[in-house]
């Protein structure tokens, strides 16, 4: 209506008329649970899996996944314009610290690599090296259009059309740049993903 403020994002989410399905729909979640990988990567040789299998496994998996998702430490890796919105997400208004997210400068102690900005072919080896320097378990959030597929610069030949050409990506965030709320949504989606794939992927 003219004169009224447009609906804010949180109002659209809570409004049943605008309800969107959850991150992973229920039937797909069931299908994923029933899938068994060809090579048994999830069932490792950890002691807690050997003692009383089934009894200790499920709660231990839940505890480990809860610990991992509650304290995701991203590497401070701001490349371009999306970095400003990433910094704004860490700041007081859209606080990410309440989710346990703490920006950490060293790749050796970081969990998540938030690729925020365009990756050029000159920078690609450095990104790959940083990803390989991070110890498992690690995840990658590709923030913004440039990291997803090259974005507005995809027609230039020195630009890597998407960071997923060199490292595996877990969550893609659209936008140029994505709002801080969108990045928060991505972190929450990653937390959901960590919880859902607990014990099934050999991280």
């Amino acid at each position: 209506m003219p004169g009224e403020r447009p609906m804010r994002p949180h109002q659209i989410r809570d409004d049943p008329a605008h309800a969107i399905s959850d991150v992973v729909p229920e039937e797909l979640r069931q299908q994923v649970k029933e899938l068994r990988p060809a090579v048994d990567v999830g069932r490792g040789k950890a002691p807690y899996r050997q003692l009383l299998p089934g009894v200790i496994q499920a709660p231990a998996d839940w505890l480990i996944a809860w610990g991992r998702k509650g304290s995701l430490w991203p590497l401070t890796f701001g490349l371009a314009c999306c970095a400003i919105e990433m910094i704004a997400t860490f700041m007081a208004r859209h606080d990410l610290d309440r989710f346990g997210v703490l920006p950490w400068p060293s790749p050796r102690q970081a969990d998540v690599l938030i690729v925020s900005g365009t990756v050029t072919k000159k920078m690609a080896p450095a990104v790959k090296l940083l990803y390989e320097q991070m110890p498992h378990p690690k995840w990658v959030i590709s923030m913004g259009a440039c990291a997803t597929n090259g974005g507005p610069y995809s027609r230039y030949d020195r630009v890597l059309q998407g960071v997923d050409k060199i490292i595996p990506v877990d969550v893609y965030v659209p936008g140029c740049p994505p709002r801080p709320e969108a990045l928060m949504d991505a972190i929450l989606a990653l937390q959901k993903k960590i919880m859902e794939e607990r014990g099934q992927v050999g991280r």
Partner: peptide, 14 residues
């Protein structure tokens, strides 16, 4: 420098 060279000048020509 040049790790963020994305060719804004060339793309603006098109």
């Amino acid at each position: 420098i040049g790790y963020m060279h994305r060719g804004a000048e060339k793309l603006s020509e098109n």
